[in-house]
Nucleic acid binder design. Structure first.
Lengths: 210, 210, 210, 210
DNA sequence: TATTAAGCGAGACGGTACGTCACGTCTTAGG
DNA sequence: CCTAAGACGTGACGTACCGTCTCGCTTAATA
């Protein structure tokens, strides 16, 4: 039907990119960053480890930081869109993995270094923002459903609430370096929910949909 | 007999370090970091700007990051120990400056980069921890006084509360890059205080820790 | 079957070294050493003058001394293999250029500095030895031909004779710093040839100094 | 008599120089140069080894090279003024020690390095020239006595003869690095004396260089 | 006896060059 | 057009010495 001169599978001239190279490079990157950290990571080392020329890396990603961001992205699956029936349960499920990452020494350090890299490069910042926004979108959904359910008042400051829940763990990971215990999330969450209960909905006392 | 054989002002042999050099170096560092950012900062440039040999810098600080930490430390005065009469007022006063720093683009970026540096170097991490702990100590005092006053229940999780208040701004500065508006602090604070009121409820009028 | 599986022009993988760089570096080296002397020669300056990165230099030569040796070697053509018909003429021709180098202030100084460098580095010493040996080989040929011709007795101490001829100029260049006049070579040569005539020839059978 | 206002022992005000320091410094210099060579010699190391401040060294000598020259000078006694009755014996005695120094690997290297230093600094060159001239003066005396005795013709080129005798060893030490055997001096000497016998004196019946 | 001038060990000072390393680009021959 | 290999120019790194300059102290000769 379509009289398009464009072939279905766009195929540029010349030798196609080795599809195996991408994987090898990303794998090498993750291995190395685990071994020596971001600051110790060098493109030469990635190339050597992946058995690949440096140009092959630069043809795909504009900098070693971009490479790292993509490599890390391959690790992390889509954040969950939980539906336990209660805000509390949903938010717990949503943020559990994130807090774990902050808590782990190695991955926590990596997050900080990546944040620093993103702070200096708008492109990376965009990648990073997109990344955290996926979780935020899920969180917004959770809160909106809770409002719909009547669990929360209609004028909840959604973003603030989400930030309050992850904030403590983030702050400890980045700056204060106080311990990030597994119950940090619960305690923050409960205090915030208590705050929401106390502020807004004088009426609502319902325990939510059982 | 002699209480101490150690003289009051221990003076090592040899020419003493030029006390003017420290200031010149730190000033040059701050100037340069403001102009070109941490990543653009070079020890050579600092030396040149300060009119000092590179060795004079390395004699004092082991790395440009350490230098930067000290330089930044010289800027920041002791965090306030406010006493407005209310937790809310006290905490507002305590954290206002901190949130401002997160909010400002340039200084925010610097905070992130410094956090990344600290994540890689235990010595810097210690400096950083000490730095944020000064504010935390002040915050703990505020909360304890509030407990004593009966404004808060006796079982407040002090550290958690403090982390909840600064957490959102920190999180936005480091990761989500959502806007850090001046009212972010107030809103977080009020929600948290509401949570505390809801948790440790109105019943409590106890005159403080007995 | 195949005489050699090794290709004639061994070509390693990767980008070949820029052949122009070698020339530029060597030229810059010679220029600079002429301007500022060996001790004033710096690798940075050579790199800058040659329009080349420092690493490009260090990739080719392990030290600035090695570089200088090679640079100087490019200047000096193969020593002559004269055949004037007489030992005297041949040796004059062979050593004239060498003595000139000793005599010239600048190049004399350079020779001394290079000798000092060679004294500290076995690799350079080998280069140097090879260099002077080329002339020595020519000299040996001259003397052997003279022996064949009957001009000299068959038991001439070839190496000693050659050293005697250049020795004075070398000694003056390196240590005594007495004038190295154009006739120094002739006079040394004539005295040595006279000695050979007195020692060896058909008449003389005297048992030497008792 | 002399109405000099200058005291016999010139004595400036202030604390006199520690006479022990000179010795300690020179000793440390020689030790170190033996261990690490001239190029590895540093003033800091000399000061540390001698238990002396760097300024104490620079107060006495203007550079580490000057220091070394003086240090080496303290080792070497006045060259002999031999009188064995024959030119041959006298010259042998005069130059034996010198050739030994050329022959020894370590001291030979040092001589070359010192020559290079002298080539770059007129003051050192003067020191060096003075040093070698002492031996030369002795050699001139020897030859003049030989002329007086009739052992040599009256028109001997004194300086040339001396240079011819030490030349080979010097040349081998500095440049060709061929072996410097103990008999090198004898052989050179005999050849030169043969040359002198053949050239000059009326007694001599040899046909000369044809 | 008090002052003063220089020397002392120690070590910091401003410089300069070193040789290394990683960056991101470019140039080979070959697939 | 891609590939592996590896050389390229750039530019910062941290180190090592240079020769000079304070420090607080000690040691004579002078006043």
């Amino acid at each position: 039907m379509a009289a398009t001169s464009e072939p279905i599978t766009t195929r540029r001239a010349g030798r196609p990119r080795d599809p195996g190279a991408d994987g090898a490079i990303l794998r090498a990157t993750l291995d190395l960053v685990a071994e020596v950290g971001l600051s110790g990571l060098t493109v030469d080392a990635v190339a050597a480890r992946a058995g690949v020329g440096k140009a092959t890396i630069y043809r795909r990603w504009p900098s070693k930081e971009a490479l790292l961001f993509v490599a890390v992205a391959t690790l992390s699956e889509e954040p969950p869109v939980p539906d336990t029936g209660s805000v509390r349960g949903d938010l717990m499920e949503l943020f559990a993995g994130m807090i774990d990452r902050f808590a782990d020494e190695r991955s926590g350090r990596l997050v900080v270094e990546m944040a620093a890299a993103a702070a200096q490069d708008p492109a990376l910042l965009e990648l990073q923002r997109e990344f955290v926004d996926r979780r935020r979108r899920s969180g917004r959904g959770i809160l909106r459903r809770a409002v719909a359910r009547g669990e929360l008042g209609p004028d909840v400051d959604v973003d603030l609430v989400l930030d309050l829940i992850v904030g403590p763990a983030a702050y400890r990971c980045f700056l204060s370096h106080q311990p990030i215990t597994p119950d940090l999330l619960v305690r923050a969450l409960d205090l915030v929910l208590a705050g929401l209960a106390g502020t807004a909905p004088e009426v609502d006392r319902s325990p939510g949909p059982g």
